[in-house]
Nucleic acid binder design. Structure first.
Lengths: 216, 216
DNA sequence: GTCTATATCCAGATAGAC
DNA sequence: GTCTATCTGGATATAGAC
């Protein structure tokens, strides 16, 4: 029991260190010290430093699914969330995005894992693929699915759900990146996020709320 | 003369190595070997490994301005480029974006520097700020400036030039990130870039080319 | 499982010959 | 400016006592 506890503590502290300094800059001695043991003891739980890194990648994947489920995002099954987006108001949409935004930034494991992946994404083709899948494709596909349905039902107007998803998602990802680098700018980024969501909402809900009619 | 040549070769090779492995994973021995000298000789040109890194950051900044000028982007003076964007066609806009996109990916120094910055962005607040300035703010402000003018002249229709710039720029940045990680996906990303530019173009040029009229 | 002691290796950097 | 030889420190990992 206590041994599993130590194992988890090693993963936690290692992620904490890897996410700010990167894999190579962190020594097993540092990790051990953070855990409260000596470096050699660490090898009773993991056969190598690389094994710690791999275990972090493994275990965080599981947590992600579980946690996103809790706030009602089913990344792997967008159809489930269609009702949430149907006839959603501008304010409700922003609140939803804000919730994900703040969750992504403030959940320690998720936030640290993302920063670690950002630093280590070029280490191997596998990590590169994992990064793209997790932080680009998955989010894009999820929203493209939602938008495709909303377009079909005539609720929003657009031609290309994939391009629309890109336009909707990329700014959010960009703003998360800014906050990862400069957490003190979170408030400013939330403002920009709101402006983005507003613009997007009005854009897809046709020309009724646009100024298009009155120009020229 | 030859000594300045060696100094530059050190910077080039160091950037090449840093951009794929990261600062800490590269030894001065590796850099020296790539240059064709022994490690101690390297200290005749730079006082420390860190000094090499700093020199790269310094020197690449200058190159960026010079090179972007060559393809007619004046990042620090958007007003100069207003004529380029005025009454631009959809295809011409895409070609322009494609040009910057491919330049950013294929210019070795620019591309490697961006990847190095991506890896090292959390090393210090200074690097974090530099990253945000160079890869977010500067591009956003440039386009917001352009859009502000085009909105004022009535050529495009939108309310918030900053949010519009975010929507336009963030997908491009995201796609460049994908290609940095997975260069084999460049073709696919160019397709997505085109779809993005098309959607954006039609969006800001009012409802005339949208399906908005005929829905429901 | 934890520790101390140790093995092995390689890092960044310097001294001084040529 | 380049080299060989070397210093010093710290890395990952193992051996073996408790």
């Amino acid at each position: 029991m206590k041994q599993e506890d130590t194992k988890q503590r090693i993963l936690d502290k290692a992620l904490e260190l890897f996410s700010t300094q990167g894999y190579d800059s962190v020594s097993v001695g540092e990790i051990a010290k953070a855990v409260g043991i000596k470096a050699p003891s660490l090898y009773n739980h993991f056969p190598s430093k690389q094994a710690i890194f791999d275990a972090i990648v493994e275990s965080t994947a599981a947590q992600y699914e579980a946690d996103t489920d809790k706030i009602n995002i089913h990344v792997q099954n967008a159809q489930k969330d269609i009702p949430v987006f149907t006839e959603i108001t501008e304010n409700a949409l922003f609140e939803k995005v804000q919730q994900i935004f703040e969750y992504s930034l403030h959940n320690e494991a998720i936030s640290r894992f993302r920063r670690m992946m950002t630093i280590e994404q070029f280490r191997s083709p596998e990590l590169a693929t994992l990064y793209s899948k997790r932080y680009v494709e998955r989010i894009l596909n999820y929203h493209a699915d939602i938008f495709r349905t909303l377009i079909a039902s005539g609720e929003i107007c657009a031609e290309n759900p994939d391009a629309l998803a890109m336009m909707y998602v990329a700014p959010v990802v960009t703003l998360i990146g800014v906050c990862d680098r400069q957490p003190e700018r979170e408030h400013e980024c939330l403002d920009k996020l709101q402006n983005h969501v507003r613009l997007f909402f009005r854009m897809v809900h046709g020309s009724s709320s646009q100024r298009g009619e009155s120009r020229e």
